[in-house]
Design a binder for these strands. Structure first.
Lengths: 386, 386
DNA sequence: GACTTTTATGCAACCGATTGCAACATGAAG
DNA sequence: CTTCATGTTGCAATCGGTTGCATAAAAGTC
């Protein structure tokens, strides 16, 4: 391109100044300078399969096939092609390839927030699995806004991702923004914050069971009035945890008390606020146990209560969810639910790639439920008999 | 594709069974069924600019220009094109576009690990900034291995990212694997774990100064023997922190003692190990202050020492680095250095996009140094006069 | 009214890999 | 010696936008 431009301006100037020797000489010199500079600076031209073909005196078709080890190409030819590619410094052009083959080897990922401990583990797992299968990840965050989630989905759609992995934003009520994917048959896998949809798989943990186990554990420790710090109920993650809590109470014949449910966004501040809320209650109405739907809220609630002189677990036992690093730092150490975000990510990707390879259909596997284990630590041990 | 395949099997079967009417009839019926099913299931054909062009009786060129609001296209025409695009359900084909224009609107990101608190903030900042400028992020992790970093860089290169953002792996000594980028003039921006390279920008904090401030603070609290928990010295992040530590000692006329340097990978276990190391020292040889190059190691060192009966800060004062959430949970709260990963990510992306837009050259801006502030908490307050 | 400038649109050649089908060589079978 | 299977390779069309250059129409200038 650059060279073409140069050549044309060269002929132009030549015809224009053909009777002016002085100027012609000057311009010629300038031109030479310019061209030299251009060539020096210019990245050497991109090597294509055509260059390799010419170099080996074979067709581009053969090169294309040879490069991806197509079985109909002679092994010897294949080796020669590979060698030439390396020698010439060939790099494949993903676009040309994707344009023609309509496959992108790219998976779109939409998460509510990138900067959460759990989510970054999930992403690490995803990246690991995807990279093993030679897929790339395009990652975006919705910042918990349905509108941004929608915009992100649209970009992914335009970028022709082979599949989509999504954990829904807080305020996403319906998934109409994903319809284009379903319409085009692009597989969608939900993880963590899932949505029940007949045509796609969900990868999640058994939140109900884990919450049930936590609550049961607190009850067995002698708690009678357990408070629950819950998250947004639009997301089944949190509604399932609440359900597990309720069911455990019921099975232990403890009446459910609406006043002991505290819904928030479960961040640090919300944890402190919950503590203030507890302190405002009459001492005899206070809970003797707290089950928080995440560790952050639990820990910051504990910190606030401790400074107010509440003893943990003697006065109030605590249990969280996630097994966040802070749960091992707070004193007393926090009882929590451990589950591997890394594993969630890995499984979600493997499942998606399975669909893409046609190994499994999105319709048959509807949900994949991963293990989650109760980790008992001092924060919940009222009768110290671990 | 599907149709072509069908057609071929059709002719095959025809020649094969041409004298067997019964079977032929049966197969024809099957074929019809199959084709019908295929057509029903098939996603409706993709809409292209040519479809829009035909629909409006104008040329594809005009549509192409109209869609990206090229000023030479009449406003009225532009509107009509936009309307038609929406009506027909057009989605642009990024590949075709990238193939021709050689721009991808994609930035490659290589980080050592995705699942770290700091890194996920950085990514959040990057995603935010990139998304504002309509760029997408392809994110990979090197898992601290030079080999994987190299492979990732190569993929990015093939994927024709417009620019590269990279934080180097622990064991990366040279950046020969990035040469293709430099050779092609693709801008590279280092962040956090940087490398001094004449043709690219580095975004980082002033590790030297921050470490100096931390050490100075500990000295002012009366510490005489400050231990330093450091990281891999191949990375300037850690070597600069060590340098800041050393210089502060020197400025306060405290002799530098090689034995008080403890190098590790700074994870939880390394923190505990450092504590064990301290406990093994003769009491009069023990440090009276610890400056750790990250919070994780500091906190886990503290936990271990506390169980051994060491008082913090009375016996040993502590300071960390990062302002990790755990620093606010440990008791006593950890003095640390606060700096915004989010901001680092944002700045790195903005700078890269600046280069891409030709606003700034990679060569002029060599390093961007961001603020980092000492956050004093109880862990370092020997003379309680905050 | 002739001529230049501005504005708006279209032509056609790309970009680089993929793929259905044809074609060729070789050797085996009949 | 023909026929056919098998293994290799190439032709040429295709994917869907982009862009330099030409052109046509409208507006402005003298």
């Amino acid at each position: 391109m650059q060279q073409a431009g140069t050549a044309s301006s060269h002929s132009e100037y030549k015809s224009f100044f053909k009777n002016c020797n002085r100027l012609q000489f000057f311009f010629q010199k300038m031109l030479l300078l310019f061209v030299t500079a251009t060539i020096t600076m210019a990245e050497q031209k991109e090597i294509t399969i055509y260059d390799i073909a010419k170099h080996l005196n074979i067709s581009a078709t053969t090169v294309s096939r040879g490069l991806k080890n197509h079985p109909t190409i002679n092994k010897n030819t294949r080796r020669k092609i590979a060698d030439a590619a390396k020698e010439l410094g060939y790099r494949s052009n993903t676009f040309a390839s994707s344009l023609r083959s309509k496959r992108t080897q790219t998976i779109g990922v939409i998460v509510p927030r990138l900067n959460s401990n759990f989510m970054s583990s999930v992403l690490a797992g995803m990246e690991d699995a995807a990279s093993r299968e030679h897929y790339n990840l395009i990652i975006t965050q919705s910042l918990e806004k349905r509108e941004k989630e929608k915009a992100n989905a649209h970009t992914m759609y335009n970028k022709r991702v082979d599949g989509l992995l999504i954990s829904l934003a807080y305020d996403t009520e319906n998934i109409s923004h994903l319809h284009p994917f379903f319409a085009k048959g692009i597989p969608v896998v939900f993880f963590d914050r899932t949505y029940n949809h007949s045509e796609s798989t969900s990868v999640l943990i058994d939140n109900f069971k884990a919450a049930y186990e936590v609550t049961k554990h607190l009850l067995e420790q002698g708690c009678k009035r357990i408070m629950h710090l819950g998250g947004n109920m639009l997301r089944d993650v949190y509604s399932e945890r609440l359900r597990g809590y309720k069911t455990a109470l019921q099975d232990h014949k403890i009446p459910f008390d609406e006043k002991l449910i505290y819904i928030s966004n479960l961040n640090e501040e919300a944890g402190s606020d919950a503590a203030k809320h507890i302190l405002k209650m009459k001492p005899n109405k206070r809970p003797d146990g707290v089950f928080s739907a995440n560790d952050t809220a639990a820990v910051h609630c504990m910190i606030h209560l401790k400074t107010a002189g509440i003893r943990i677990p003697e006065d109030i036992a605590f249990a969280g969810f996630n097994n966040d690093p802070i749960s091992k730092v707070i004193e007393p150490n926090l009882t929590t639910v451990n589950y591997s975000g890394y594993h969630v990510g890995e499984v979600a990707v493997m499942n998606l790639i399975g669909h893409l390879k046609g190994l499994s259909s999105t319709k048959t596997t509807n949900r994949i439920v991963l293990r989650a284990d109760l980790v008992v630590r001092e924060s919940s041990l009222k009768n110290k008999s671990l």
